[in-house]
Nucleic acid binder design. Structure first.
Lengths: 113, 113
DNA sequence: ATCCTATACCTTGTTGCGTTATGTACATGG
DNA sequence: CCATGTACATAACGCAACAAGGTATAGGAT
């Protein structure tokens, strides 16, 4: 039903999406998978094999920070929070996204599509 | 001066950008490099080593069609035009872009950034 | 004459990253 | 007892941007 988003756009949106979600408070991988699907109305369906490496890179680069937590049910979760570096990166990513969207809209306009 | 756009976003935008430009009429590689820089206010600065392979892929996949032309000055140019397949792909890419932008804005809203 | 810049195209090696598949482990419902 | 959901992780594969290099012509500056 919902048209799937093409590969490169998944790659381009993963970092700003994760950082944006964490800007709203702590979260963990599995929850973010659901969150993204919800936010996109089902069109963005991340695989876990894609998300976890993303989270590891963001943590390695100091944009997010993780801590292990045990639930009452005995399940382990890795909660992540946004760091100051992450906040700055999010600002830059939002600016980039706006720049590209503006440029694309300009091209769409000139072509009167 | 203009903040550069990050790598993955370049990748994600190259196809819809090229298709959009060609939706406005024929063009060639070198001209598109200038056009993109103009449309983005200088923020999107494609390298030729990135664009030409993109054009070759799009032509291979039948989304654009090229023809060689000689200018009066004796320079060779490869002019490209949008095919019907390319038009359909452009529609899908625009839809994907809108979907992601909406999802990101939803995330930004929830985080009241 | 020589050099630099602009025009105009192309390709190769390196690196990064999504996808697919697989693995581990616990909890719950049928 | 077994499938599904929760929750994380990694490895092989393929694709694509980036940096750097190459070919070629034209015009202006030194």
């Amino acid at each position: 039903m919902a048209a799937p988003v093409y590969r490169e756009l998944i790659a381009a949106s993963s970092r700003p999406m994760v950082l944006s979600i964490l800007a709203g408070g702590e979260s963990y991988g599995y929850q973010m998978l659901k969150q993204v699907k919800l936010l996109s109305g089902g069109s963005v369906d991340w695989s876990d094999g894609m998300l976890y490496p993303v989270l590891h890179r963001l943590e390695r680069d100091g944009l997010i920070a993780g801590r292990w937590q045990l639930t009452d049910a005995g399940r382990r979760r890795k909660y992540y929070r946004l760091t100051d570096r992450g906040k700055r990166q999010l600002s830059r990513d939002r600016a980039s996204w706006r720049t590209l969207t503006t440029a694309l809209e300009a091209a769409w306009g000139e072509a009167h599509v």
